[in-house]
Amino acid sequence: MGEIPRETTGSFDRVVREREIQVLRTAFRILGNWADAEDVAQEVFLRLHRHGLEFASDGAVGGWLYRVTVNLCVDRTRSARVSQELPELVSRDRSAETAVLMEEKKQRLMTALALLPAKERAAVVLREIEGLSTAEVAAALGSSEVTVRSQISKALVRLRGILNREEV
């Protein structure tokens, strides 16, 4: 990578700081461990650097980042089994009991999520956790909205099945 104009570098740094949480968290939700998520996030930003910052809007950057993140995560899950490291996100200040219960539910859900096919998992993460619209998820996954709705619906059924089996 050659010399980059200072202005571009500054813009790039700004985008990285604005979007790093989005990228890292999405990757972690799909992959289930921080080490892999960090690798993916790094690759996503390097690709952004190569791609350049010529996006139509700020939202377009976000969409592009989601798409690349999901693609890299799906590729990674195809090439290697996703480790099912339990999430270690920093908990908010809550009452101890509620926090423990919430944490337990969260961990079970994340463990079940890791058992879903990569595309379904990505659809659930983007739609349910990241809060994207169905159209945005479809754009990120490169599929239609109908497919996304179907994937999410199937995924939720499967998750419920997995969690109910655990409870039995």
């Binding site: 949480i21 890292l24 968290r25 972690f28 939700r29 921080w34 270690e88 996100l89 920093v90 908010r92 919430m102 539910k105 969260k106 079970r108 859900l109 659930v124 349910e128 956790i129 990241e130 809060g131 939720l156 998750l159 419920r160 969690l163 109910n164 409870e167």
Partner: peptide, 19 residues
């Protein structure tokens, strides 16, 4: 855990900070 609870947990995870 039903679908409603799942969605609730997911929403709770939305703003969790990253290490």
């Amino acid at each position: 855990m039903n679908e409603q609870e799942m969605r609730e947990v997911f929403r709770g995870m939305r703003e969790e900070p990253v290490p």
